[in-house]
Amino acid sequence: MSEELFTNLAIFVLSLLVGFEVMSKIPATLQTPMMSGANAIHGVVVVGAFVIAAEANSWPFYILAFLGAFFAAVNVAGGYTVTDRMLGMFDRKPAAKQGEADHK
């Protein structure tokens, strides 16, 4: 195992542990807004997929770049969708007219 691979693997494992600790300290009422915002910010992954596509020189790398860009775009769209649905829960419903309330 090369030193660079070991360093990258150690950083990955440490980031998983730190992420788990941070997420476990956040109250349940703030999980949805935090995660939807984080998904929207992950648009950086789309840029990373484009950089990989620019460096690709064979079909397997082109396929990986396409899959990376596709899943990153789905992640970003999902983040915005979740945010929109979450904010929709806070919209006030139009008040029912007096006649409609009596018939129910």
Rank of each mutant, 00 (worst) to 15 (best):
R92K: 12
Q98F: 04
A73Y: 06
Q98S: 09
I63V: 15
T83V: 02
V74I: 15
G79N: 06
T83Q: 11
Q98D: 10
F66N: 00
L87Y: 04
A65P: 09
T81N: 12
A73I: 03
V74S: 03
K93F: 03
H103A: 14
K93W: 09
G79V: 02
F66R: 06
F61Y: 11
R85A: 09
L64S: 14
E100G: 00
A73S: 15
A73T: 13
L87E: 01
A96K: 04
G78V: 00
H103K: 11
F71T: 08
G99P: 00
G88Y: 08
H103F: 08
L87D: 04
H103E: 05
D84F: 05
V82K: 02
M89W: 03
H103M: 09
I63E: 06
M86N: 05
K93I: 13
Q98R: 09
L64I: 14
Q98W: 06
K97I: 07
G79K: 01
Y80H: 13
G78P: 00
M89A: 15
P94C: 03
F90W: 02
A101R: 12
M89D: 13
A101G: 02
G99Q: 05
P94F: 05
E100S: 08
T81L: 14
M86F: 14
G68P: 03
F66K: 10
D91A: 13
T81H: 11
T83A: 15
G68C: 12
G88A: 14
G68R: 03
K93Q: 14
F71I: 11
A77E: 05
M89F: 05
